[in-house]
Measured scan of single mutants.
Amino acid sequence: NQASVVANTLIPINTALTLVMMRSEVVTPVGIPAEDIPRLVSMTVNRAVPLGTTLMPDMVKGYA
């Protein structure tokens, strides 16, 4: 099973992502692959992402 990116904290809308905000976890449904974490750093989220939420491609500006 592939690990996905999961919010390690509440990420407010329009926040630039940092490494400490994200962790990898095997979850269903599958979200952004964990190997993309380095690429996500400094990208911003377009909605509030609660703790434990899987990051989906449409949640990160410029990812999809």
Rank of each mutant, 00 (worst) to 15 (best):
N46T: 11
V41K: 06
T54K: 04
V20S: 12
M56Y: 10
I11R: 01
M59W: 09
T44N: 06
E25V: 05
D36M: 12
M56S: 08
L10M: 14
S4P: 01
Q2T: 12
L55F: 08
V6H: 00
R23Y: 04
L40V: 07
T54S: 04
G62N: 11
P29V: 06
M43P: 00
T18M: 09
T15P: 02
T18G: 04
L40K: 00
Q2L: 14
V45F: 01
I37S: 04
R23A: 05
G31S: 02
T15D: 03
V45W: 00
T9P: 01
V45Y: 00
S4W: 03
A64L: 10
V6T: 05
R47C: 07
L10A: 14
M59C: 04
L17R: 00
M43Q: 06
V41T: 10
A34R: 05
T44I: 14
V20Q: 15
I13Q: 09
Y63A: 04
R47Q: 12
E35V: 12
V26K: 05
I13F: 15
S4D: 01
D36V: 07
I32K: 00
T54Q: 03
M56D: 05
L51R: 11
N46E: 14
L51T: 12
L10T: 13
S42Q: 10
R47F: 15
A16V: 14
V45N: 02
R39H: 14
P33W: 07
V49D: 01
L55D: 02
T53Y: 10
G62E: 08
Y63R: 03
T44E: 07
V41N: 03
I13G: 09
I11T: 00
R23E: 03
M56R: 08
R47L: 08
A3E: 13
E35Y: 11
G52I: 03
V27A: 08
I37A: 08
V41M: 11
E35G: 09
Y63C: 05
T44C: 11
V26C: 06
L40Y: 02
N14F: 12
Y63P: 03
E35H: 13
Y63Q: 04
M21T: 03
G52R: 05
V6M: 05
P57D: 06
D58R: 07
Y63F: 10
